[in-house]
Design a protein around this nucleic acid. Sequence first.
RNA 1: GCCGGUGUAGCUCAGUUGGUUAGAGCACCUGCCUGUGGAGCAGGGGGUCGCAGGUUCGAAUCCUGCCGCCGGUACCA
Length: 495
Amino acid sequence: MAKKKTTRTKPRRLKGFRDIEAGDVLARDRMIAKIRKVYERYGYAPLETPALEYVDCLGKFLPEADQPDAGIFAFRDEDEAWVALRYDLTAPLSRYVAMNPELPRPFRRYQVGPVYRVEKPGPGRFREFYQFDFDSVGTNAMLADAECCMVMCDALEALGIARGDYAVRLNDRKVLNGVLETIGGGDVLGEATSRNVLRTIDKLDRVGIEGVKQLLGDGRKDESGDFKTGCKLTASQIEVVIGYLSAEGETRAILCDVLETLVGESEVGREGVDELRQIDTALSAGGYAEDRVVIDPTVVRGLAYYTGPVYEGVLTFPVVDEDGVSREFGSVFGGGRYDDLVKRFTGQEVPATGASIGVDRLLAALKTLGKIDTSPTTASILVTRLDKTLNAEYQQMVGELRAAEINAELYIGNQGIAKQFKYASDTGKTIAIVAGSDEMAAGEVSIKDLRLGVELSKEIGADRKKWLEQQPAQFSIKREQLVESVKEVLGRYRA
RNA sequence: GCCGGUGUAGCUCAGUUGGUUAGAGCACCUGCCUGUGGAGCAGGGGGUCGCAGGUUCGAAUCCUGCCGCCGGUACCA
């Protein structure tokens, strides 16, 4: 025999991508269902768009470099056109709206699905992840932005996050721009510097107020010894920015007054404050007070396409993960107004606003909180096959249970009864049904309460004989009472 | 992308100053017990020591490169 050099394929998985197992998929589906209910309650209707789009339609083609933006998954199709996986659900929405000018406005849709980004993966951070968006396109009314905040609150509460355990933080890009304008000293700060300052403000939660001060000035050395060049603002400019970031007010209205003095003569700044006031009015009328939505001058939300109000939903309690490390989960919901996104297709102003929930991130948070059921089981009953000549009987039993809308699995493997019980507990079943010749003769079936069995086995210790003889978690019932008895046992473990 | 750490069984890790057949716990499988999941006892399978070179009589151990993972940083629509 010649030496065979079998080249077997190594099972590999792309970096940043995951296999998501039953418990998580089921939990995510339940989450999505709850969120969808809230969105629909406000009248948003579903839309689905393709996972692949032309790169230029996503707004991520770099003409100078003649290639797509790094950061997205892209390839050339058979016609040499650049094609990419969507990196969010907003760009496809604006493409859709541009292609369908006859849509009644405001157009309100929700969409859920995976999006793809080439980023460095980290804890709770992946290259493929679910977003669940809702948006209103075609209205510049601040009522729409106020509604976004309300929807975010309702959605988080629908997921079981108590009021007080989350907050929606609200700000307005125009206010930020207004502050930048005032420190420009008449002149507007350079585009690059403005971006840099916003970026720096966005880092506040990571580097703290002192870090921001340094980064606005000459620069800062971080823990790893790396030096990062700062924005080179003057001391008095920094003072203004820090003053702005520290602005506080008892109520949203009072904070608006404070912000107004900070933006001074800046026209955009005043516009921004006015927008916040309008949103405050709408929120207050809707009963959404400061215990749910707060104005927070430190919110920036990236740099991209936001043009007005921006908002993010954060979890305000610390979460301790599996390794016992306390983690800030931070932002799980984000959004804002983007008035220019459709313009690049049609040339027409189409104001739009919306928000997006990071489903996977929030799922991870709820999981570590123990606020979510991640059991992988879909059927809580296993009908075992003790005596393979009685298959017809077993088939009959699962049939009855299924007819009663009880998920029931028939053991279809080949192993003996001991293995069948092990299989039942390994797959998270609550009940195993046993019926052999003894039961048949008596017109009975045995019901084994597997969860109770686990409990009782702790007390019974090492005495296997006693365990086997007593079978404390098992009892017999009349064959006709199968469905009824199963319901009764399941009832013990409901919620 | 950059800086640092790390890489031994499915998991968590031991492995002395390089020295013969690489270990433990947990998990898994089998039996005690062919009609009973736990526990117990007995046994068993599983590792080209991340990959590729180099130094050496000899490398899991030393050197170089690459890859993966973890942390920080940059980016984050």
